[in-house]
Amino acid sequence: MQFEIFQIDAFSAEPFGGNPAAVIPLDTWLADDLLQRIAEENNLSETAYFVRNGDTFDLRWFTPSVEVDLCGHATLASAYVLFEQLGEQAEVLRFNTRSGELRVSRGAEGLLAMDFPAKQPVAVDLPVGLLEALGLNSARAVYRSDDYVVVIDDLAVLASLKPDFVALSAFDVRGIAVTAAGRDHDFVTRWFGPRVGVNEDPVTGSAHTSLAPLWSAMLGKRALTCEQGGARKGQLHCEVPGNGRVIISGRAALYLRGLVYC
Rank of each mutant, 00 (worst) to 15 (best):
L158N: 05
A231V: 11
D201G: 01
P241N: 02
L26K: 06
F57N: 00
R257T: 08
V173P: 05
A79E: 08
V124Y: 12
G54Q: 05
G229Q: 04
F62I: 02
F116K: 09
N53Q: 09
V246R: 14
A231F: 07
R106M: 02
V198R: 15
Q235G: 06
D115K: 00
P117D: 05
L86N: 02
L254H: 10
K162D: 06
L224N: 12
I247N: 03
H73W: 01
R52D: 13
L259I: 10
S65M: 10
F11P: 01
G17C: 06
H237Q: 06
A74I: 08
S160W: 00
T47H: 09
A167S: 15
I248L: 15
L219Y: 02
A252W: 02
L34K: 13
R60Y: 01
D172P: 03
R257G: 03
E109R: 05
M218E: 15
P64N: 07
A212N: 04
L34C: 05
V81I: 04
K162E: 04
I5V: 10
H237Y: 06
H185Q: 15
P20N: 07
V66W: 01
A180T: 05
D146H: 06
Q36F: 11
L236I: 12
T47R: 08
L236F: 03
V260T: 15
A21I: 10
F50E: 00
R52Y: 11
Q120L: 14
T225H: 11
Y255N: 15
G129R: 01
S138A: 09
G182Q: 07
Y49W: 05
S65R: 14
L86V: 02
D125T: 09
L70E: 06
E200S: 10
F171K: 00
E109V: 03
C238Q: 01
A252F: 03
C262A: 13
D58A: 09
I8R: 05
L224I: 03
